[in-house]
Design a protein around this nucleic acid. Structure first.
Ligand SMILES: [Mn+2]
Ligand SMILES: [Mn+2]
Length: 450
DNA sequence: GATCGAA
DNA sequence: TTCGATCAACGCAGA
DNA sequence: TCTGCG
């Protein structure tokens, strides 16, 4: 462990570090390395002139840390340009905007990308000097990036805190040209929304190593495979279940070519007692979207009349998912039976619109309300998960009030999702974790079950 | 995408 | 060291 | 019992 880091002699004439008086070469450390948040860039003829970087201070505020002008190869620049363009924003995310000399064309960015920079020193104002770009760090979260140490110089032991995304340039959705890198950027950025909903909930993955037009497969266990930071937990059956509790685990999943993430309706607190049930509205694909809106509304009214609060999300495909949070109490069988009773009730009420029986032939011209997602060990695509289909739509939580304006269940995609999330004043699901309700005898009575 | 045995 | 094969779920219901 | 489904 070389505490001072590597020491390099400056040997170029005209270097500001050369002592003119005695001819000695002044040795300085130019091997400080650390990660910075990319907060902007300057435009140049080539596209990118320099990167503007920032750090979080002790108060958690994002502060300017200078410009990085060298260390880029053309391949990196080519790769970076579309990523940066997609993240542009009108105003800086920095607490205090730095000033630039006239003529410098600055573009500000969402503070989500992380890069590693080598530099000689940090000035009293907090700006790096002689900064040299070392590479992007695609595993992120940018939120954790602050000055690593006042006595920098960790030997470049590759820190294993971040996941390397390989083949980032690979197009995994040919219909849009979206790449693995863009998928990784999406999951890195959506983590703040998604991870709380995944916490301690066993997950399954839909993986597609060759993109969505290649072979896809479903993964529920980690048997024989260690995915960094994805915990495994033994369920009642004795089989291992995967947990994604951190951004690192989420990025690991992406690196493992996961596109969709599906989750249980119970957490490890008690895997035998669901903490929610889901009514998955599956339409005949030919059904007009308006029918889905009306059907969702009607199911929610029935739930409300039973005394149950519900939350909505698009599936990212054709239908809507209605999520009913529960305080864990009943077991899987009881909850599934109850959810089936709701479905039977509705199908009996309006048989021309609903089916309580699975199988495509039973829903021609109708909507099957899939209660089977509420079996033990069953999973449903998670909120904010991408769907492994052309367009990369995501499953998006919405307000009940948005339903009637919604144009489809696939309208939110990784390409437009942050226009929504960044402008949302409140999380439509903010109240979900605080919703305390259970299935009561009275509800069962109304549905004619015991 | 990762692993492992064979070449 | 490189290369190719192999693997990566599973329970429920409907017929 | 076999098959489709998600
Ligand atoms: Mn569905
Ligand atoms: Mn379904």
């Amino acid at each position: 462990m070389q505490m001072g880091g590597q020491v390099h002699a400056i040997t170029q004439a005209g270097s500001p570090y050369r002592s003119e008086r005695n001819g000695d070469w002044i040795k300085i450390k130019i091997h400080h390395r650390q990660e910075f948040v990319v907060v902007g860039y300057t435009r140049a003829a080539a596209g990118i002139g320099s990167l503007l970087i920032g750090l979080h201070n002790d108060a958690g505020e994002l502060t300017y840390a200078g410009r990085v002008k060298s260390g880029f190869d053309s391949r990196t620049l080519t790769e970076l340009r579309p990523r940066l363009r997609a993240l542009e924003r009108p105003v800086t995310a920095l607490k205090d905007s730095p000033r630039f000399t006239k003529g410098v064309d600055v573009a500000w960015l969402e503070p989500v990308l992380v890069c590693e920079v080598r530099y000689a020193e940090i000035t009293p104002k907090g700006n790096v000097r002689h900064a040299v770009f070392q590479g992007m760090r695609d595993d992120k979260p940018a939120a954790g990036i602050s000055l690593e140490s006042s006595t920098p110089e960790q030997p470049p032991e590759p820190r294993k805190t971040q996941i390397r995304i390989t083949h980032g340039e690979r197009v995994i959705d040919p219909s849009t040209g979206l790449t693995k890198r863009q998928l990784a950027d999406y999951y890195a950025r959506v983590g703040d929304w998604m991870l709380p909903l995944l916490h301690d909930r066993p997950v399954s993955l839909v993986r597609a190593p060759d993109g969505i037009e290649g072979e896809q497969f479903f993964q529920r266990n980690t048997t024989g495979l260690a995915i960094p930071d994805i915990e495994t937990m033994h369920r009642p059956s004795g089989k291992p279940a995967m947990l994604i509790n951190t951004s690192k685990a989420l990025m690991s999943a992406v690196q493992m070519s996961a596109i969709e993430i599906h989750a249980w309706n119970a957490t490890t607190t008690d895997l035998s007692r669901p903490d929610r049930f889901i009514l998955d509205l599956d339409p005949d694909p030919a059904l007009p979207w308006l029918h889905m809106i009306e059907a969702t509304h009607l199911v929610c009214v029935v739930l409300q009349e039973l005394g149950l609060v519900s939350f909505l999300k698009t599936s990212g495909g054709k239908g809507i998912h209605i999520v009913v949070p529960l305080t864990p109490k009943d077991d899987w069988t009881a909850v599934k039976t109850f959810s089936q009773a709701i479905v039977k009730h509705i199908a009996k009420l309006i048989p021309e619109r609903f089916s309580a029986v699975s199988g495509p032939k039973n829903r021609v011209g109708r909507i099957f309300i899939d209660y089977l997602r509420n079996s033990s060990g069953a999973t449903t695509v998670a909120a904010y998960s991408v769907r492994a289909r052309p367009g990369f739509a995501v499953s998006m939580p919405i307000w009940h009030e948005e339903l009637s304006m919604l144009q489809g269940a696939h309208v939110f995609t990784i390409q437009n999702v942050f226009r929504r999330l960044d402008s949302l004043i409140e999380d439509p699901w903010a109240a979900l974790p605080n919703t305390a309700q259970t299935i009561t005898a009275q509800m069962r009575k109304k549905l004619g079950i015991r």
